[in-house]
């Protein structure tokens, strides 16, 4: 299977290990991810706050570029995924917006007809490839590893339809397929607060504290994420958050593709397992 691949800005640098592991895992699963030529930033929440039309147009440029190929667009970042998907949906639904975006695209010699199918990488693995196939490729079952499958907000909201916005299960099921044990924790779709880290650290940290508290309270040995921003919030700031609230959090955070890679016996160096700021624990070291 062949997909057009939209890594997004975070995966280029700060979450390169997410991209590396995604590419390695995909290859093993027989998926070819072809990076979208000359893609641009999706605008994220930040550009959208500034001016919606331009922000939608930025996404539309990517969609226009992707439309040249008859392939689905695979997106590993939840924020990019929501931006692109929202743009595509609103272009369909809102005639005035469609008209203005088309004018902007035309000025740049582009056109978007509305045909690109946007999928999150998790959706590609769980729905397109299927858990049975993944299970059959697992070489080293992650028996007994207690995993907190953290979805965050934007992969399931607003109503993308590939999983329930309140109580999604795809990542839990994927975890099970790898032989690991997904733990129950009630705020698996709570917001990580990453969009507020720069502007309102105190509030963002409070959200991360609640998440980490809930995860550790339910005995998770590792958190897996489906979004580079969630990963950054929970990994890079974990120590600071703990310090601020008087907890000694030490829960490694992996991109879900890294965990998959471990089960598929991809060398940990290739997966960038050790690029996280939270040191790996015993439970994880057993698989490295």
């Amino acid at each position: 299977m062949k997909y057009t691949y939209y890594p997004g800005c975070s995966l280029e640098v700060s979450s390169k290990s997410y991209s590396d592991s995604a590419l390695a895992v995909s290859e093993l699963l027989g998926i070819e991810l072809v990076e979208l030529e000359d893609w641009n930033c999706c605008g994220a929440t930040v550009y959208l706050s500034y001016e919606e039309l331009i922000s939608f147009s930025l996404c539309a440029r990517n969609l226009a570029l992707a439309e040249k190929y008859d392939r689905d667009l695979a997106v590993p970042c939840s924020s990019c995924y929501t931006s692109l998907k929202k743009t595509a949906t609103y272009i369909q639904e809102n005639a005035e917006l469609r008209d203005k975006i088309n004018q902007a695209l035309q000025a740049a010699g582009l056109e978007y007809k509305g045909k690109v199918n946007i999928k999150h990488l998790l959706e590609v693995y769980v729905n397109d490839i299927g858990l049975d196939v993944i299970k059959s490729k697992v070489k080293r079952e992650l028996k007994g590893l207690k995993v907190a499958p953290y979805y965050g907000c934007q992969i399931v909201r607003p109503l993308h339809g590939f999983d329930d916005p309140e109580s999604p299960t795809s990542l839990d099921r994927l975890t099970e397929a790898l032989g690991a044990t997904p733990i129950y924790f009630p705020n698996k779709t709570s917001c990580c607060g990453s969009s507020l880290i720069a502007t309102n650290e105190e509030l963002a940290f409070r959200m991360q504290k609640d998440l980490l508290l809930c995860v550790s309270g339910n005995d998770a040995e590792v958190i897996i994420t489906v979004c580079p921003l969630c990963h950054m919030a929970l990994d890079a700031y974990q120590k600071k958050v703990g310090k601020m609230y008087g907890f000694n959090f030490k829960i490694p955070v992996l991109h879900f593709t890294q965990l998959m890679g471990l089960a598929l016996e991809i060398p940990s160096k290739k997966l960038g397992i050790k690029t996280g700021l939270v040191p790996l624990n015993k439970a994880l070291m057993a698989y490295i």
């Binding site: 001016e51 039309l53 331009i54 440029r61 203005k100 004018q103 695209l105 035309q106 000025a107 740049a108």
Partner: peptide, 16 residues
């Protein structure tokens, strides 16, 4: 340049 042209055009449209 393509991106900038597009942004300028969107700006000129006066937003939403």
């Amino acid at each position: 340049n393509q991106l900038r042209t597009m942004v300028r055009k969107a700006e000129a449209l006066g937003g939403l």
